[in-house]
Design a protein around this nucleic acid. Sequence first.
DNA 1: TTTCTGACAACAA
DNA 2: ATTGTTGCCAGAA
Length: 105
Amino acid sequence: MLEDDFYKKVYKVVRKIPFGQVTTYGAIAKFIGSPSSSRVVGWALNSSHNDSSIPAHRVVNRNGLLTGKHHFFGHDLMKQLLENEGINIIDNQVQDFEIKFWKPK
DNA sequence: TTTCTGACAACAA
DNA sequence: ATTGTTGCCAGAA
């Protein structure tokens, strides 16, 4: 495991999230090797705003809650994008989260 | 340079 | 079960 930057790994994983599925900060952090670095994952995504290749809207917290939606251009954009992929959102919460959940491999 | 905070999560009390 | 504290990394003041 010689990946250089923590950020780089985050981007790499997030970009691999398939259409219609979501993942969590913790899952990504764990996959990278720092299970407690979930915060940094979110921070990395914050910096990734410039990179349109990163579907940050598919990353939610472990409760399936869209905690980061406020950081998007429109506060409903995240929700719209997810619903566009077949994911139902109720009260900023992903429905059938277990089913939509995708773990990096 | 030191300190605080942030798109989270896990543990202690 | 709920609330509070700690860990992680990077960037801003």
